[in-house]
Amino acid sequence: MPDWTYHPLRGPAAAVLGERRSQRTALRLLASIGSRPAGARLIARAFGHRHPPRHLAGDLAGAPVTVRLGISVPPSLAREAVRAMPPLGAGVVEVGLVSAADVRTVREAAAGRSIPLVVRARDPETEAALEPHVDGFTGSDDPHVVRVSDPSVTAAAAALEVPGTVVLARPGVLVEAGPGWFARVTEAATPTEPAPALRDVGRDPRRWPAW
């Protein structure tokens, strides 16, 4: 649902289901719809997903990402996040902290993914078990990774201005701000140019700006 319907329903849903359960229910719904081509297009259109500019591309833990903006979720939300995030404009999913007991869950989430999946593991044994199945491993003290709990679009966009920095939202950010948060951050982090003067537009309608 677009953010204008998400916000009024967020409170009642959390009251009925509980914050964590309502969060998972929303991700499951988005994952179910987004796993189908027509559904993915619908979500992308509803939440204002746009193709990110090249300067927002980069990598995380050696995995190339189209946009240095993603989500960091616990293993219990991994499957839903991997399927729900691509149409929303996220560029990567981090799962953590992951222990040996979560290996099967993460493997299942990684199968058939269309978005880079990295893991923050608790120990080397867990990393070894997941290495063939994921795109890389992150650490809690990586200076190039900023994990945010504040839904501020301005703060996230400012962090992306630092070359190589990857911004990962906690699930609570989407609960608070709505699934359109990724698109709004991408928009805020995209440089704008002054509109051309009328004398510079020309007579060809195909070259007219969007205004």
Rank of each mutant, 00 (worst) to 15 (best):
L9R: 14
R10S: 07
A14D: 15
R20M: 10
R20G: 09
L29A: 15
L30W: 05
A44F: 00
A46D: 02
G48Y: 09
G48M: 12
R54Y: 03
L56Q: 01
D59V: 06
D59T: 11
T66W: 03
V67I: 15
I71S: 04
P74Y: 12
S76V: 10
A90F: 04
L97C: 13
R107P: 01
P116H: 05
L117W: 00
V118G: 04
R120W: 14
D123Q: 06
P124F: 08
T126Y: 10
A128S: 08
L130R: 10
E131H: 13
E131F: 12
E131Q: 12
P132H: 00
V134W: 11
G139W: 11
G139H: 14
S140E: 15
S140R: 14
S140I: 13
D142V: 06
P143W: 09
V145K: 03
V148C: 09
V148I: 08
S149W: 03
P151I: 01
A158P: 03
E161I: 06
P163L: 12
G164L: 04
V166I: 09
L168N: 04
R170C: 08
V173C: 11
L174G: 03
F182T: 00
A183C: 07
T186E: 00
E187I: 02
T190S: 01
T192L: 13
P196G: 14
A197Q: 01
A197R: 06
D200L: 09
V201Q: 06
G202C: 13
R206Y: 05
R206C: 03
A210M: 03
